[in-house]
Design a protein around this nucleic acid. Structure first.
Lengths: 345, 345
DNA sequence: ACCGCCACCCAAAGCGCTTTGGAAATGATT
DNA sequence: AATCATTTCCAAAGCGCTTTGGGTGGCGGT
């Protein structure tokens, strides 16, 4: 069923039917009701392509998800982020088109998506520090919102980020307050902006107390379970083993715990762990008594808000690009406790 | 840059340019080269909407991801499945459009997506036993492929599934062979077809050895970490506690392990655990020495193949709907061992 | 009785592409 | 030199919608 048929069916012109359905005022409420009812009855849905052609708007948002070629890995937070964004889109009549692309190939995909006219706006995932995509999208003239930031980019652009630096600063301070002095950072890939900010927070806390930065305590890789396990094994077997670990992802923290417990140690007593927790739905960190002390921030909520920002940006492109900084909560769980050495003081 | 401009630019008609770009034979190779080069130089990309309108094909596939309202949870396997499917799509010039929808609302979304002409085909996720969507899509006339099966649906339809029954039959047999007699099943929601098949495999194995089915040993819920933990706590504290657990998801297995180790028990010695492992990229079950004994099947590969099947189905709709049954591997890891009681025999 | 003004509706153009049904030019055949 | 098949290209229609720029009829005001 298309517009013409529907119009013929009703004995009206396409114009009138179109206007009736799109809520234009110049149509009698009685006819509008008649039209709406007929449309419903015939299960009429305007063809997106035709509508898009006519209006010039695609009513779709593109998400380009980077995927590590190395590990064939897609960061699990995307699932929840997408879920949040999807909510916003469907409430506003937008579709979501998704591309999974190998690291570094994203630019071409953005170009294509826009060039084809497949999307009205884009969400940029996983920004690197001096991410070239931002400049590119800017002079491509497509509305976009970055999930995260690109520290080295100085031109204004729309972003939504968690205050990663502050979160890790606080987490580190928390461990320091507990008497820990040898604190390891099991970070994500530091070419990614969020990871470098977390590191900055960590270093800032140490430096503020005149503590040295120990390169051996800092690791940076893709956040798999295995990586957490291996790192901790390594570090605990070294001399001057850390007494505390700061971990960048829940998944990795699972591996960290595994390594700790395999050694007969206990989290919170022998070794302290703080992890960042993106509040992945299947991984709720225990509602009542969290297993892990964690810096918490809902990535789903981030998705919702980023999508909202993007839609507003599309509607009002002349406004200056909005920014939003979400604060992470530091929630105390069972994985932290006073440093073992300080107990004996 | 659109076709007309490009054609004017070249002093050719739109027809010729279009044909040149789409590889039609009736155009001189010299002109074709000229056209292709100009297109490249001007960064020309045919407008999807216009193309779609003209051809009637959307060059897009819809994925409707069910999302539990209850836990706001989206199953983590979707990430990897989507990644696999996405590979296939992008290789074939298709886009992927994604909708996340609350449980049970999927039908409307399928209808919309098709009615709007936004997609040429659909992937059905998370089929229930007598899933109504299949009949609906059938008489809607949309090509689709189901990831999984719907046992109660008797009409032929295209699906790709893992042999869940057999996988869990084998896993249960494996535990039985090790002397376990009290084996608990920590299953996913059994309204979902895959879960009911897993249960069938489990029951089949027990029944084949004339062992009773103990309802208290069978659990069925959404596969969160917490669920695994709670279930095991519960069961281990009961009298006649199980000596082995069969778990439906890696995530849940993590919770199972947590509960076991928290009690000072050790997996593989005191308690045996077998989990299903979808080979999620960030959760590689240890390449060399797997932590968990597991029934393994790559959901990413499933995505790749399901997508391929769908594209073929779209190309040749007259062929009978294809089916594909993937076998899971039973990979032995460190989480299984002889039953404690049988040791004392 | 005439004018003007709404309220309501319509015909037709246009969005950017594909595709049908030729036409013009070229070369081979008689 | 005339004929005919190829090759190479083109004009125009059409995909399903929105939107511009009117029309028509009914009403109140003069």
């Amino acid at each position: 069923m298309n517009l013409r048929e529907l119009a013929q069916n009703l004995g009206l012109s396409q114009t009138t039917v179109s206007r009736a359905l799109n809520g234009y005022p110049e149509v009698n409420e009685a006819t509008r009701a008649r039209v709406v009812q007929a449309a419903e009855q015939h299960n009429y849905r305007p063809n997106t392509r035709a509508k898009g052609l006519a209006t010039g708007r695609a009513m779709a948002i593109g998400h380009v998800i980077p995927m590590s070629k190395q590990h064939e890995m897609v960061n699990p937070v995307f699932g929840d982020f997408i879920a949040g964004a999807g909510e916003t889109y469907s409430r506003n009549g937008y579709d979501m088109v998704l591309s999974l692309v190998e690291d570094g190939q994203e630019e071409k995909t953005y170009r294509d998506l826009r060039g084809k006219g497949a999307v009205d706006g884009l969400i940029v995932h996983g920004p690197k520090s001096g991410d070239a995509r931002i400049a590119m999208l800017d002079d491509l003239g497509v509305p976009f919102v970055v999930h995260g930031r690109a520290s080295a980019v100085t031109t204004p652009y729309a972003w939504l980020d968690v205050n990663n630096r502050k979160a890790f600063r606080r987490a580190t301070d928390f461990l320091l307050d507990l008497g820990h002095r040898r604190i390891a950072l099991i970070n994500g890939l530091e070419e990614l902006d969020f990871a470098s900010r977390r590191r900055a927070g960590y270093e800032e806390a140490l430096t503020a107390r005149d503590l040295p930065l120990t390169p051996a305590y800092m690791r940076s890789e893709e956040m798999t379970e295995r990586y957490g396990y291996d790192s901790v094994c390594d570090l605990l077997d070294s001399d001057a083993a850390p007494t505390a670990f700061l971990v960048s992802s829940m998944i990795t923290a699972i591996g960290v715990r595994r390594a700790i417990e395999e050694r007969g140690l206990r989290m919170g007593r022998d070794i302290s762990v703080i992890t960042h927790d993106d509040a992945l739905s299947y991984f709720k960190n225990g509602e009542d008594a969290p297993i892990f002390t964690a810096t918490c921030s809902s990535v789903r909520e981030a998705g919702r808000q980023a999508a909202q920002m993007l839609l507003e940006r599309i509607a009002k492109p002349h406004l200056p690009p909005p920014n939003r900084l979400l604060e992470a909560q530091l929630v105390v769980g069972g994985s932290t406790g006073p440093a073992p050495t300080s107990r004996t003081d």
